[in-house]
Amino acid sequence: MSGHRRATRARLLGTVALGAAGYGTLVRPRLLTWGATAAEAARAYPGDELVPGGRPTTMATTLPAPPERVWPWLAQMGCDRGGWYSWDRLDNGGRPSARRIVPEWQELKEGQRLHAVPGGGTWFTVALLEPRRTLVLRMDVELPSGRPFEVRTGPLPGAYLDAVWGFHLSPDPGGGTRLVVRTRGRSRPRLLLRPVDLLFGEPAHFVMQLRQFRNLRARVGTTEE
């Protein structure tokens, strides 16, 4: 290899290393705590204990309606129900998420399955439920098949994802709702899946969660139910 090529390669590697360091120290921490105060990001939430050692993200927003008006929109989430209020082409089979409260979708109980994808091949389980305050969804899937499994009923698969997606509501002094969304996940084999999570999983969650915040804000800000 010529001296010029070695120098070019060294500069390229240096640029990549600098970019990775900048993302890790400046960009990524902001993505993982978007909208949350330092206190909100630091505190523990119901559901954290379900995935011990899992990596957390904490995103938050203020919605222009009290918790009792926000809760019905969360209670009817699911591909087989009201959708996820995010990018419907990506997570709801292209079917538009609900724009009104549907009474038959308001019944929710712990242990209930909510389809994560059209057809119900993968689902979230309602792990914790306190109406108008806490909704924690859990997903446990084998990889790469995406086949669900139960963490509590046997040995873990060789490759898996175990994660919770929690919605935590509290009254805002201005009459709205402070909505904090805490995720916590772990996956194995770590050496293989950690780069995938860093490069795809975390940015994808950031984009989808921001979209959900925006759409929830628009829905709860209307009086149509």
Rank of each mutant, 00 (worst) to 15 (best):
L143A: 06
P148V: 00
R81S: 04
R99S: 15
L74G: 06
E130D: 14
G119R: 03
L179H: 02
W105H: 15
W84K: 01
R219H: 11
T8R: 09
G19H: 02
F167Y: 14
A36T: 07
G3C: 11
T33K: 00
V27W: 15
R69G: 01
P67Q: 06
E224F: 09
A39E: 15
A41K: 03
G24H: 15
P118F: 10
N92S: 11
T25L: 14
S187G: 03
A116N: 04
V117D: 03
A127H: 04
V181S: 05
Y85N: 01
S187E: 05
P56L: 02
R5P: 05
L18Y: 00
T122I: 11
G3S: 11
P64M: 10
P173Y: 10
A42E: 11
R95P: 05
R186C: 09
R9M: 10
A39K: 08
N215A: 00
T125D: 12
W105C: 02
H168V: 00
T15H: 13
G221K: 10
H205F: 12
D48C: 11
G176E: 06
L143M: 04
Q212Y: 07
V126I: 03
L13E: 11
T183M: 09
R55Q: 13
E224A: 15
H168S: 05
P52G: 12
L128M: 09
G94Y: 14
A65I: 08
L13A: 14
A218H: 13
P157N: 06
D197H: 04
P72M: 06
T25G: 13
G35P: 04
G111I: 03
